[in-house]
Design a binder for these strands. Structure first.
Lengths: 186, 186
DNA sequence: GGTAAAAGTCAACAACCGTTGGCATATGCT
DNA sequence: AGCATATGCCAACGGTTGTTGACTTTTACC
């Protein structure tokens, strides 16, 4: 019996939590509402996760799962990265949860910075570009800005963009951030 | 007596509100805290602005004040726009208020879309580019993403960027979004 | 100076929140 | 079967929030 009863409710709580956190943000997503979605008692959420903060931490556990793009030609890394990120954003709600919350919650913002420093920067190092920190920051700024406009603020022209067109627009931008010479010396 | 007493307290409330909304977001910024900052009674905030929602609407009144860039050569519009936006973001807290709130508050998100449709798109129309909607959306995605990383999430490499370097990085991206041919036909 | 209106103060309300402890029920093991 | 334990429900607590109404003080005008 690999799947205990408690595992299923635990998973149900997590699913409901991700939906609520993703739709409403940290403050407006109430434990009571999450529990109602999962069809259990609010007290159960506390028993399983200890506190709202810890529940959020569990719901925002995230792995961007960036491939290492080792076999992609240098000039197409931007496109590949853009395509991967769009797929990743649309696969589940986790990234939406994190972005929605990071804007008003310092813990979530720190988590976001960890993802940045722990997953994107190492990749750029492997691609052996110079100044990986600044370049990773610029790539993030475009990737997060696009996600913000498309999935959170829902600007109509960006929402309406086909995934392929989005990749065609964002790819060269990212590639330039990865390869262009620095604007000036230090 | 051009300056009545009530005008001063009204202004004090607005200033405190912008600070709190900008720092904490809509939900966590309490009327009591705003009133305390303005050194008045919470009930006064209600008398002056009616409700928390209306207070926010007043605090988020915004004009991006984009010049029309009529005399700027086509290839430098991106730089000029980037420079203007950075200055605008650092001039006061209004944009921070709006972005922090728009992520979790539908009213604020709609306001953001209004700024986009009412101030940025008309400018692109004047510059007579084709497909102004998509291009304006892309410019927004980069501009907002950069602001997000620099002023809200505070990614260290982006925070550390000199304004001039930021302009040098963002300018060409924006210019490309304004001038590059569309990736494909409709 | 007296008076009506504006500006400000105070206390309280109703609602909602996260969280807790006690109690019932179901489960799984021997 | 019998019992220990895990799982679940219920009611309530303490605290915070937006908001309101009555009351007092200051201001501005004749």
């Amino acid at each position: 019996m690999a799947e205990k009863k408690s595992d299923r409710t635990r998973a149900a709580i997590l699913t409901a939590a991700r939906e609520r956190f993703g739709a409403d943000g940290y403050e407006r997503a109430t434990i009571r509402a999450i529990a109602a979605d999962a069809a259990i008692d609010p007290a159960m959420v506390m028993r399983y996760f200890g506190s709202k903060e810890k529940l959020f931490a569990a719901a925002a556990e995230i792995d961007v799962r960036l491939p290492d793009f080792g076999d992609v030609p240098r000039e197409q890394v931007g496109e590949a990265m853009a395509r991967h990120l769009i797929q990743r954003w649309e696969a589940d709600d986790t990234l939406k949860v994190l972005l929605r919350t990071a804007v008003t919650n310092e813990v979530a913002a720190e988590r976001m910075r960890e993802v940045f420093a722990g997953q994107l920067m190492p990749l750029l190092r492997k691609l052996s570009v110079d100044q990986p920190a600044v370049r990773a920051g610029l790539v993030s700024s475009q990737a997060l800005g696009f996600a913000l406009c498309r999935y959170i603020l829902e600007f109509p022209p960006i929402v309406g963009l086909q995934a392929d067109d989005a990749v065609a627009w964002l790819g060269p931008t990212i590639t330039r951030y990865l390869t262009a010479p620095l604007p000036n010396q230090a």
